[in-house]
């Protein structure tokens, strides 16, 4: 009996300590979506049980290690206890019940997280190595930045142009892979007006780490303004720049002339002499640029093809229309 009281005290102490450490507010990022509320609630239930079970086993072990140490020179065996069937049934049955309860709570939470709003704002999210683009089909605009109206459910239709990626904003809690050839849904109702970072959460190659995009949650009016400002420009040169930003080129090619990017800079490219991996020189004219967009492996620029392959996806010939490609090239020509 003495031992039982002792160990119960140790367990109680450890449980309180565990509950103190394991509070969702200390451990999770800011809660910024309606879905996160349900998920964080489930986290806190789980943390209660984890704190208790950790304390239970560790308490019994710590107590045993301290109290039931063999005295030096004591060669006797301990008491012969082979087992106890009611006890075994209890510690099989009770966890089973707890597990089923948690599975039911888990299912309900999932249902709440997935609950659709018929008036949700549809946004098409495309991941490609290594950039995100967002299309608002209702308004016919595209952007390299995800802008969401606050307190309105967004239905994200997520896909990929090349390899797997995953959409994750830690403050929204929910995550969804982007799979080529499939469209996956994710519903998010942002509740806080501020900036977030969207991060790719499924390894996607060389620049996976840096495949991030800005997310901005704004009031309804500011969202309208964003849509107005994001319309496809009428000027073909400006349109080229628009495609550059929204179709993925920007992820790897800069326009400030800085070296060390994934792909060569666009600044001063047009009309220049480009040195290739095999040492030969080519003149960067429209034909060269068009070929490099559609078939990046055809001519490997020195410093960007040491492996014998270009890092650039080979499918821009499909994802861009010929007009878009021409407009992009037209815009690159202006970058002196």
């Amino acid at each position: 009996m003495k031992h039982v009281i002792g160990v119960v005290l140790v367990i109680a102490l450890l449980t309180v300590g565990g509950l103190f450490v394991l509070t969702p507010a200390n451990l999770l990022p800011v809660q910024a979506s309606a879905q996160a509320v349900f998920i964080d609630q489930l986290f806190s239930y789980q943390f209660y049980v984890i704190s208790f079970l950790f304390a239970l086993i560790m308490g019994l072990m710590i107590y045993s290690v301290i109290v039931f140490r063999r005295k030096p020179g004591d060669m006797e065996d301990a008491q012969h206890i082979e087992g106890n069937t009611p006890l075994e049934l209890a510690w099989t049955g009770i966890p089973l019940v707890i597990v089923v309860i948690f599975a039911i709570i888990g299912s309900n939470t999932l249902a709440s997280v997935l609950r659709p709003d018929p008036k949700a704002l549809e946004i098409k999210v495309t991941g490609r190595q290594w950039a995100w683009t967002f299309e608002y089909p209702e308004y016919g605009v595209s952007s390299d930045k995800l802008v969401l109206p606050v307190n309105k459910q967004a239905l994200l239709l997520i896909t990929s142009d090349d390899v797997l990626h995953a959409f994750w904003v830690p403050e929204f809690r929910v995550k969804q892979d982007a799979v080529p050839g499939a469209i996956n849904q994710l519903r998010i109702t942002p509740t806080k007006e501020r900036k977030f970072k969207l991060m790719c959460a499924e390894i996607c190659g060389r620049d996976h780490t840096f495949m991030v995009a800005d997310v901005q949650v704004v009031k309804e009016e500011a969202f309208k303004e964003f849509i107005e400002n994001s319309k496809v420009p009428t000027d073909p040169i400006a349109r080229g720049e628009y495609w550059y930003r929204t179709q993925g080129c920007k992820a790897c090619h800069n326009t400030d002339g800085a070296a060390g990017g994934v792909g060569p800079t666009y600044k001063g490219l047009y009309g220049s002499q480009v040195e290739l991996e095999d040492g030969s020189l080519v003149f960067a004219d429209e034909l060269y640029m068009k070929e490099s967009i559609i078939n990046p492996n055809a001519k490997l620029v020195k410093g960007y093809g040491a492996t014998g392959k270009s890092a650039m996806p080979g499918n821009f010939g499909n994802s861009l229309t010929p007009e878009q490609i021409n407009e992009i090239i037209g815009w690159i020509e202006t970058l002196k």
């Binding site: 998920i39 489930l42 789980q46 984890i50 939470t109 809690r173 499924e202």
Partner: peptide, 17 residues
């Protein structure tokens, strides 16, 4: 003990990867 939060879909949506 750190397993069940991964095994439960809703919390795994945050924890996965």
């Amino acid at each position: 003990l750190s397993g069940p939060p991964n095994g439960t879909v809703a919390t795994d949506l945050h924890l996965h990867d």
